[in-house]
Amino acid sequence: MEEKCKSAILEFSIRRSRDTNALELVFRDEKFSEDAFELTKDENMQVIIAYIKRLISNRANFVSDMSMQKLDMIERFLDNIMLELIKSNVESGVKGGVKVSKSPNFGTNEVVQKIMAETRKSEFISRIMANQLNTVHPKLYKVVKAWVKGDEIGYNCNGVTLDDIMKKQKASYVESIFRMSIILESKSPKKVAEQYKTFQFLRG
């Protein structure tokens, strides 16, 4: 495979199409246009591209055969093909497409904007979180209502506060409400709050 790819790479060239002016990658008799990545329809192509990229990265073997500039161009082109491949595959069905329904209560645009500002998350995520605020434990409604108005009144369940959650999980105030909710939703909030104190949320 390696030898095959080594000789194959010497046959790559990049040029501009006379008809469309799009960039083309030419490999033996085949042309691969910048605009239409037909090449990527072949599943094996991913593997071949990966091999060729490895070979390119080992530049010392190739400088005598090809200019560095040309290698750079081919590498970028292959990178781009990989990206396109992933993009097209994901768009054609891998993406789940979660519906975001607007809620009559906390899921207002104003709340979405507030979440975006405080969590630095996208509008997409913030809208989901705003809607999910409607599902938190009823004991937290007053906490959410106050927060919407700009007050952080806090909450304490058996020694676990929203502040503790924020610190422990590097969460914003509004994000910490969701954790407090699941503590309250449990059969024994006291016991779960005690357990929570021992959780470490280690990252790696």
Partner: peptide, 24 residues
């Protein structure tokens, strides 16, 4: 507990929600 919190914050499709956000 992490899964429960993810469901509460990002719905039952939390993994897809997070992945879709990355995809954007």
């Amino acid at each position: 507990s992490e899964i429960n919190e993810a469901i509460r914050a990002y719905t039952k499709k939390y993994r897809q929600v997070i992945a879709d956000d990355l995809f954007d």
